[in-house]
């Protein structure tokens, strides 16, 4: 069976060039984050002040900034800051949101009511605003941005998980498991959790793109690591003052960011359309 499906999956993938391109973009971004030295020989921190504001060229693919630092190198190293924060944010939102949704959906009435009213409140505050408030309390840093973005999307994970759990709990096989004498916790672990996770995982895939955007937006507003650190949102913000004369400083890092988010969205929709779901 697996022998047959593997080539078919490859063939399906090759029939969708956009999806292949999306995977390439995401893989490249992950490569940048994991092994930045492999992709550029320039340092992201030190530049040649005499070569400031060089336009894109064979030497400096994305040009250089005010301090003569290679912008491509800063983008490559920035991937680590931005993607680590994104990953942390999604893990926080997924982990906490799933547990909350599970408790609300499985333990029923009182728990459900109490938890969902709190979730309502978190949903009533737009996530960027909530993240800004949280980051102002925690202090400015890349990790706190990640935490803030994660916290601000817990509510949507909790809501999806809850509705999935409610749907699964009503299924016959769950009743059958009870009938066969399984305990509440055993049913929870064996049947409810595995069967409700798929939608939440699809949401997590979608959330990756959203979280990259949120992390970069907060970085752009200046709530991330302090300036010498490369971060995608901050790179765009740094170039903003020179956009009239040296537009590439903002636009190239911003475009790299946009491409990664578009690719992440494309991949997440392909996961959702998966018939096995």
């Amino acid at each position: 069976m697996t022998v047959l499906t593997a080539p078919r999956a490859t063939r399906d993938l090759l029939r969708q060039p956009v999806l292949v391109a999306a995977w390439v973009v995401v893989a490249l971004a992950i490569g940048w984050a994991l092994l930045p030295q492999l992709f550029t020989s320039f340092s992201p921190y030190t530049g040649d002040p005499t070569a400031s504001f060089a336009p894109p060229s064979a030497d400096h693919w994305f040009g250089t900034d005010r301090l003569g630092r290679d912008l491509y190198a800063r983008c490559v190293y920035g991937a680590r800051t931005t993607l680590t924060a994104t990953l942390l944010a999604v893990v926080v939102a997924f982990g906490i949101g799933t547990v909350i949704g599970l408790v609300a959906g499985y333990f029923g009435r009182l728990w459900d009511n109490a938890i969902m009213r709190v979730v309502d409140v978190f949903l009533a505050i737009p996530s960027l605003l909530l993240a800004m408030v949280v980051v102002s309390v925690l202090g400015y840093s890349a990790n706190n941005i990640a935490l803030a973005v994660g916290i601000s999307s817990i509510a949507s994970f909790a809501r999806v998980m809850r509705s999935e759990v409610l749907a699964v709990v009503g299924q016959d096989y769950v009743k059958a498991a009870y009938g066969a004498g399984a305990g509440r916790l055993a049913v929870l672990a064996r049947h409810v959790v595995p069967n409700s996770l798929s939608s939440v995982i699809a949401l997590a895939a979608l959330e990756v793109g959203t979280a990259v955007l949120a992390v970069a937006s907060l970085g752009f507003l200046g709530y991330g690591s302090p300036p010498p650190e490369p971060e995608w949102g901050l790179l765009v913000a740094e170039g903003r003052d020179y956009v009239a004369v040296h537009p590439w400083i903002s636009i190239l890092p911003g475009t790299a960011l946009a491409l990664v988010v578009i690719a992440a969205h494309r991949i997440s929709t392909s996961l959702r359309k998966d018939p096995r779901r």
């Binding site: 955007l213 937006s217 009239a244 537009p247 636009i251 946009a258």
Partner: peptide
């Protein structure tokens, strides 16, 4: 059909700066 997902994916600050660059400067 691919436009909506591109619209939510492009960071607002990037599209703002692009518009600024082209139409204002």
């Amino acid at each position: 059909e691919s436009l909506p997902s591109a619209a939510v994916s492009v960071p607002v600050f990037l599209s703002g700066i692009l518009l600024l660059q082209v139409f204002a400067f």
